[in-house]
């Protein structure tokens, strides 16, 4: 944990820009490949609400995408690993103080870090149980496999927590991403963006929770 006291700045302007580039890539990775993939994934899983058949058909369709592993690695795995590793680094160099400064944005700043860590733990487990695990053991991923998995109440609660954390992290990430990309500059536009993102959170979280219950 860093201490609160900073060291003196030297009077030479720094010329290294790697931190800036990494921070922009971190934002971009979270919004575009990961954000779009997560929304697609949540929509795919919502098909379970319409029954096992629709769900299994859709899985078969997704698995029929040509060069699927290539897309999975370049558009999901690499951005995800980068976003996670840089995100962990960012959480470790910040010193959250929401216990003293109880402003909404400051609480969300802390939650963004907490939900990021929860999401990472959840995603590792989730990828292992439904992608890498079945791939190695040759098990077919289907509605029944997911149902069996979610029948365990601990796993179910873990899934609810993980999915809601991921959606929170994404929705709040859009509001801060709009600032990182210099779009919402003033407090009024930032307020509107926050309201829209709250709406995104409510819709996606509601859909995800209903989808999870439909597996039971």
């Amino acid at each position: 944990m860093p201490s609160n006291t900073v060291t003196q700045l030297n009077y030479t302007a720094s010329t290294r820009k790697s931190r800036f580039v990494l921070s922009r890539l971190h934002s971009l990775a979270g919004l575009l490949p990961l954000g779009i993939f997560m929304v697609e994934h949540l929509l795919s899983n919502a098909l379970a609400i319409f029954g096992a058949e629709r769900y299994n058909e859709h899985i078969a369709m997704l698995q029929a995408i040509p060069f699927l592993p290539l897309f999975e690695i370049t558009l999901i795995a690499i951005p995800l690993l980068f976003h996670a590793i840089y995100g962990i680094y960012l959480s470790f160099i910040s010193k959250p103080n929401a216990n003293v400064y109880k402003y909404q944005r400051n609480i969300y700043f802390m939650l963004q870090r907490v939900t990021g860590i929860i999401t990472l733990i959840f995603v590792i487990y989730h990828v292992w149980s439904f992608r890498l695990g079945p791939l190695l053991s040759g098990t077919e991923v289907s509605h029944s496999l997911v149902s069996e998995h979610l029948a365990n109440p601990f796993i179910f609660v873990f899934y609810i927590t993980g999915v809601i954390s991921a959606i929170f992290h994404f929705s709040n990430g859009i509001t801060t991403g709009l600032i990182t990309w210099g779009i919402t500059a003033g407090p009024a536009s930032q307020r509107v963006a926050r309201k829209i993102c709250t709406g995104v959170f409510v819709i996606l979280a509601g859909m995800a929770v209903v989808s999870l219950f439909s597996f039971l």
Binding site: M1, P2, S3, N4, V6, I93, S94, F109
Partner: peptide
């Protein structure tokens, strides 16, 4: 008040 102004950052 900034959580990102500290010895680690």
């Amino acid at each position: 008040a900034c959580p990102n102004v500290n010895s680690g950052s």
